[in-house]
Write a protein that binds this DNA or RNA. Structure first.
Lengths: 134, 134
DNA sequence: AAACCTATGTTAGCTAACCTTACATAATAA
DNA sequence: TTATTATGTAAGGTTAGCTAACATAGGTTT
């Protein structure tokens, strides 16, 4: 579809993305280093992020806030393309098409449980984001 | 509606706007000089353009292509501006300010950008531009 | 024709905002 | 304890933005 073209259009410099996502440049570059996003570059080597990239950054942020580490996030997000693994790791038996071993799944779930409820994000509003935007 | 806020959010540096609109930096600044757009500035004085600004630039470009000069374009665009601008402000002061989660922000923003494609003319579509985009 | 606009190009000098690399560190895992 | 992870920060370099000024083709006006 056409929208997918637009969603992957490289549009935003890192400064804009920082403000939109409330992530530091360091964090954003770190997630790129771990292949979670693939922003384009200008001719002069500056990153340009697409809406898909921003989307992905929000996902990474949320998962980190939930206490999941990079290894887990990579597993989760880099699987998404193949399966519609949106919400559940649990009852997707039948087709064993996930690359997780049982052990990995258990490990992830345990960490999730251990860290559950550690953070309750202050749920910043769009208005606030906009106001801090300059 | 809230989309007006999103549409007036300062997001794009001039380089991105140049590619999207096929206008030179000189042209864009010149139209600003003539009050046809009002891009925000970063703390460091760099312009940041909103979707509204980009829409407006397309309008200016079209009118110029039709042979209308700046004086005429000002008359045309600064008349209809009354309504549009006011509805923008009205939205921003909306009192029932419900908080947006990050996910909502992301979805709204994405939708907004996808809708930006509605403004493509047959001769200069986003799709075509995207091919020339790097 | 000469003089004058108008919209845009171009150049120069300045600096914010980006870049990479490297080192530091608190928190967690082993 | 020691190692690893995710992030901060600082240094030093480059790009892409800024303003201001002058240049100019093509249209008007005188």
């Amino acid at each position: 579809m056409r929208s997918s073209i637009r969603r992957s259009m490289p549009l935003f410099p890192i400064g804009t993305v920082m403000k939109l996502t409330d992530l530091s440049a360091r964090q954003i570059r770190y997630y790129e280093e771990h292949q979670l996003i693939h922003p384009q570059r200008t001719e002069g080597n500056r990153r340009l992020f697409s809406l898909n990239d921003i989307d992905r950054l929000f996902e990474v942020k949320d998962l980190l806030d939930e206490g999941i580490n990079m290894a887990g996030i990579k597993k989760l997000l880099l699987e998404e393309g193949k399966t519609v693994v949106h919400s559940d790791l649990k009852d997707e038996e039948g087709k064993g098409k996930k690359d997780f071993t049982d052990e990995e799944v258990r490990k992830l779930l345990r960490k999730e449980l251990i860290n559950a409820g550690r953070f309750q994000r202050p749920d910043s509003s769009f208005g606030e984001k906009f106001r801090n935007f300059h």
